[in-house]
């Protein structure tokens, strides 16, 4: 057997990121399968994983998991480097930045629900801005803002509740 020249050492952290990203990718596939009344309105179930990872393992792990999810999800669903990929990337980047700031809110008062709602708004805001600047250069895109914002509030709350529920349970022992 030819020995590989490059030796990759895989740390426990890498394993964890890979498993969590897999879970997030799985949820994005479920997301894509859910019929939507309007393109762009999705439950964003994968954000539950991001929220849990942010709370348990910190912001940089959350960035890794989200980034891998966007990349692998787009490859699996066939929109890698298509407009949808950049919309997804912009939304994810902005919501990660928002989460990075919002996680410093006092945890006694603001839980995963707040983080989820703020992230959902950042996500849709980023997507609308990119759509306005690049895909549909007309203010008509903003006509959809109330719908998107309403969906962000509803799904943000639901995802936040699910994340809070998961976080209320003890962390699973990592044997994988």
């Amino acid at each position: 057997m030819t020995r590989s020249v490059i030796e990759l050492t895989v740390s426990a952290e890498d394993h964890r990121v890979a498993w969590l990203a897999t879970a997030a990718v799985g949820l994005s596939l479920v997301d894509a399968a859910v019929p939507s009344p309007l393109p762009g309105i999705k439950p964003g179930l994968a954000n539950i994983v991001t929220l849990v990872v942010l709370a348990r393992y910190g912001w940089s792990t959350a960035v890794w998991v989200s980034g891998l999810r966007v990349l692998a999800g787009s490859l699996l669903l066939g929109y890698f480097l298509a407009p949808g990929f950049f919309l997804s990337l912009t939304g994810t980047t902005l919501s990660l930045l928002t989460l990075g700031l919002a996680r410093h809110l006092p945890a006694r008062w603001f839980g995963p629900v707040s983080l989820s709602i703020l992230a959902a708004f950042a996500h849709i805001g980023g997507q609308l801005l990119l759509a306005r600047l690049w895909l549909i250069p007309h203010d008509g895109v903003f006509l959809l803002t109330p719908l998107f914002a309403g969906a962000a509030l509803v799904f943000g709350t639901i995802n936040g509740l699910i994340a809070a529920k998961l976080l209320a349970e003890p962390a699973p022992s990592e044997t994988a």
């Binding site: 809110l105 006092p106 006694r108 008062w109 603001f110 839980g111 995963p112 629900v113 707040s114 709602i117 703020l118 708004f121 803002t145 109330p146 914002a149 309403g150 509030l153 943000g156 709350t157 936040g160 509740l161 809070a164 529920k165 209320a168």
Partner: peptide
């Protein structure tokens, strides 16, 4: 699971969505 500040965020967001219409 909803903490006091979460209610604040929900209410403020709902108000923002309402006024965006």
């Amino acid at each position: 699971l909803i903490r006091p500040g979460d209610w604040l965020v929900i209410l403020l967001s709902a108000a923002a969505v309402g006024s965006s219409i």
